[in-house]
Amino acid sequence: MKKSILLYRRLLIANWNALIEYRGDFITQIISSLVFSLNHIIIVLLLTSKVPSVYGWSRGELILLASTYNVFIGIFHTFISRNLDQIADDIYFGKLDYVLLKPIDSQLATVIWKINYISLIRVLFGLTLTVYLMGTLHIIITVPMIVVYFFVIITGVYMLYSFWLPFITLMIFNPRLSNIVIFLFNITNVARYPKEMYARLPLYIFVPLLPLALILTTPTKVLLQKFTFELGFLFFAVCIVLGLFARFIWKLSLRHYTSASS
């Protein structure tokens, strides 16, 4: 355990040094991160400029959902997405062997190497906006609320990782699908809207989208004090099933990995 912590500490330092190596890039990345943070907020403001409420969510609540999206996606992009992007590249170029030969669990090795500190700006932006919106919605922030909120967010990050991984392993079978990561970035947009929006869809569309529909609606409902036992049960059940499924698919796919671009 101590060895793992030391290793991760070194990775944290190495990633920080890589980030500040080029100052010009550092500033550009900060600007682009802020632009992306504002992006969905502007979209929600535009969409709700003519409608006071949608699917039982008021304008303020929808903006709160958008700010929670920034917190969530900031954490996901900081610790997870770049690593999965790298794994896709490794599969495409037949370099996954280097990851698999390391003396750690192969699935864990898919997510620990790259840390994108810049995305923490989105987390900060999202948290600041969330606190402000909670004030305008007259909701009192409590310690248990904060604990549950972050616990649900972190579980949601794991859920999204488990959603992405099986798609990325598709590349082991068809390495030409190297744009699948861009598609995953796009499909994550599903999470930006309330779960209730997808309930109108046919079951065969709704069920595959359910994890994405839950990952943001659940923490936002924690903040809005609308979190129910049923929602919590559904959230954690989906998380466990998806986590097991992702591990099963990963292990199964590795058996078909043949190094030189599969």
Binding site: L47, K50, V51, P52, S53, V54, Y55, G56, I182, F183, N186, I187, N189, V190, R192, Y193, E196, M197, Y198, R200, L201
Partner: peptide, 21 residues
Amino acid sequence: LMALLNPALQLLFWSGAIASN
């Protein structure tokens, strides 16, 4: 699919907005 996704989401959003407003 990427080109399809965003319009599909917006359309779904508007279908709810038109129904409830």
